[in-house]
Computed example of a mutant assay.
Amino acid sequence: MRERIATACRVLAARGLADGILGHISVRTGEDEVLVRCRGPRERGLAWTEPADIHAVGLDGVPRDGIGDWSVPNELPLHLEVLRSRPDVTAVAHAHPPAVVAADLAGLAIRPVVGAYDIPGARLAAGGVPVYPRGVLIRTRRLAREMTDSLGDRPVVVLRGHGLTSTGATPEEAVLRAISVDTIARLSLTIASAGGTPADLPAEDLAELPDLGGAFNESVAWRHEVAGLQPEGGGRPGS
């Protein structure tokens, strides 16, 4: 699992969703234990995340595995509160995608403007992507509760002037959902910059979109993301 979390962090960086040293991923591994990406003594950023950067903490925020020179994220409460309040969630990804921030500040909601272009993304957007309206560092349980109130029972919440929090049954699912939201945000900005207005796909078209199943939505898509990583963690070909 540490290797999977490290790989998911590198994908976030390669996709441009978590620049520099910002962003982190956590996974529930027990009733009261979480593995989370921490900042180490040789911190170089998410693109170079290694399994050694992933450490166990309790739901009380106390390190469990001799964290040593590593430090937990300032926004650890963001992860812990989602995992406390959402038993259906196993993984949480927090990232700072510039397009998601820009689209929200421009008044462009994440809506189902695409169809077969990204079927999982269209389905996610059709269910609604809420916004937490405060551009704060979520480093207290009080602020984390505000964010989870905005998240509700949805898989992703946009954080105004900040980024997003994405959830899933696995770290891979949480990251793929974040990528879909980022893709829709980028398309919405492009449409608006060309003078158009992003419009929802008609309901009858959404109803025609098939459920391609987890094997395609996650396994095949994830192999593509991992294949795009350069050995040194420097990004995707052509990025």
Rank of each mutant, 00 (worst) to 15 (best):
80 L>P: 02
75 E>F: 05
198 P>K: 14
234 G>P: 03
236 R>C: 09
207 A>R: 12
181 V>W: 02
101 V>C: 14
147 M>G: 00
37 R>M: 01
22 L>T: 06
61 G>A: 12
115 G>D: 03
85 S>V: 03
125 A>T: 10
23 G>L: 06
64 R>C: 12
233 G>Y: 04
7 T>H: 06
203 A>E: 09
22 L>H: 03
36 V>N: 00
212 L>S: 07
217 N>L: 02
39 R>M: 01
230 Q>T: 13
115 G>F: 09
51 P>G: 01
69 D>I: 02
141 R>L: 11
87 P>G: 03
227 A>N: 07
129 V>Y: 04
132 Y>K: 12
27 V>A: 09
79 H>G: 14
79 H>C: 15
65 D>S: 12
232 E>C: 14
74 N>G: 08
233 G>T: 08
179 I>V: 12
105 L>R: 15
78 L>K: 01
120 P>W: 11
174 A>Y: 06
84 R>L: 05
148 T>A: 01
95 A>D: 07
225 E>N: 10
36 V>A: 00
232 E>Y: 04
74 N>R: 03
236 R>F: 13
175 V>S: 12
88 D>P: 02
206 L>P: 05
159 L>K: 10
238 G>I: 13
139 R>Y: 02
113 V>D: 10
129 V>T: 14
122 A>L: 12
69 D>P: 05
134 R>K: 10
55 H>V: 00
134 R>H: 13
225 E>I: 09
189 L>W: 07
226 V>W: 02
21 I>S: 11
86 R>P: 04
121 G>M: 13
215 A>S: 12
183 T>W: 03
87 P>Q: 07
68 G>S: 08
6 A>T: 01
183 T>C: 02
99 A>K: 07
20 G>L: 13
62 V>A: 15
178 A>S: 09
214 G>A: 09
94 H>Y: 10
212 L>V: 07
188 S>P: 09
225 E>A: 15
70 W>A: 01
140 T>V: 04
180 S>A: 14
12 L>F: 05
9 C>Q: 06
152 G>H: 01
219 S>T: 12
67 I>K: 05
92 V>S: 13
200 D>Q: 08
138 I>T: 05
140 T>L: 03
120 P>C: 14
155 P>G: 11
232 E>D: 15
115 G>A: 15
162 H>I: 12
79 H>D: 11
7 T>K: 14
236 R>P: 04
137 L>I: 13
176 L>V: 08
170 T>C: 08
169 A>I: 02
13 A>Y: 08
203 A>R: 10
140 T>G: 03
39 R>E: 00
154 R>D: 06
67 I>Q: 06
4 R>G: 10
133 P>K: 11
176 L>H: 05
149 D>R: 00
208 E>V: 13
142 R>E: 07
129 V>L: 08
175 V>G: 14
71 S>C: 03
21 I>Y: 02
36 V>D: 00
150 S>N: 02
59 L>V: 04
64 R>E: 12
23 G>A: 07
10 R>I: 10
86 R>T: 06
217 N>S: 05
63 P>R: 07
88 D>G: 07
26 S>D: 06
5 I>V: 09
33 E>T: 15
56 A>N: 03
13 A>W: 05
182 D>S: 13
224 H>C: 11
17 L>H: 03
122 A>E: 11
